[in-house]
């Protein structure tokens, strides 16, 4: 507890890094998911139901499997080894994006399904373009969309498997809160581990409150 109260510089640095990495993953994933989700929702095509089923199945991929996949891809002898980004924050962002993009995508689609037909019909009759229609619908469904963002961010900030496998828990470079908690537990420093866990929840609370404020505007 002292570490939090006294703003221990290493804890603060780990916290900032955690937020930066999870935030970047969440932003990039939402930049993909919101347009793509709108596209899937508004277009009619064969196999749509199957696609949605696949997306929803990907909600349950274990983080350690994604970690392994990204590791094999980015490893020196892997297909993307020349990028030389294994064991960097960039690799963690890639892994977390793979983790949360299906969640954001699936929840965007179901959020849009909740928008009333009359809204869509009115907008269409007023001559709204596809882009405007999507924007309007996302705005109508903002409660569900923000809830999806919160869930995606929460999943990114709390995952351990990817951060450990492709980040490597390097002190001062890729150590984030979950890997720090894991290390503290390994070292038998249970109080530190618990304090970090509480700090993580506290952060999640603050972010939730901020995002909820935003959607009420």
């Amino acid at each position: 507890m002292e570490l939090i109260v006294s703003f221990d510089p290493e804890v603060m640095e780990i916290t900032a890094r955690t937020l930066r990495i999870a935030g970047t993953s969440c932003l990039l994933a939402s930049l993909i998911s919101l347009p793509l989700g709108s596209l899937v929702h508004f277009r009619r095509f064969r196999g749509k139901r199957v696609l949605v089923n696949i997306i929803q199945t990907l909600f349950s991929v274990p983080t350690v499997v994604i970690g392994l996949l990204v590791f094999v891809l980015l490893s020196r002898t892997g297909p993307l080894g020349d990028l030389d980004i294994l064991f960097t924050p960039a690799a963690m962002v890639i892994g977390q994006m793979i983790l949360i993009t299906p969640i954001l995508l699936g929840l965007t689609i179901s959020a849009l399904s909740g928008v009333g037909k009359e809204v869509v019909e009115t907008a269409t009759s007023l001559g709204a373009s596809g882009f405007q229609l999507a924007l309007l619908s996302l705005k109508e469904a903002r409660y569900a969309v923000v809830a999806a963002l919160i869930l995606g961010f929460g999943r990114a900030i709390s995952e351990l498997g990817i951060a450990m496998m492709v980040g490597g828990n390097i002190r001062g470079f890729t150590r984030v809160m979950t890997t720090a908690i894991s290390l503290a537990t390994t070292k038998g420093e249970l109080e530190l581990a618990l304090a970090l866990g509480m700090l993580l929840l506290l952060l999640a609370l603050v972010i939730n409150i901020a995002l909820n404020r935003l959607q009420q505007r």
Binding site: T24, L27, L31, T88, A90, V93, L136, K139
Partner: peptide, 25 residues
Amino acid sequence: QISIKTKVIALAVIAIVVIAGVTMM
């Protein structure tokens, strides 16, 4: 109006992400 505002926000967000991404890569 909404779409212009949103585009500005979207651009800002992308800029932040790219900067963050580059500094981290």
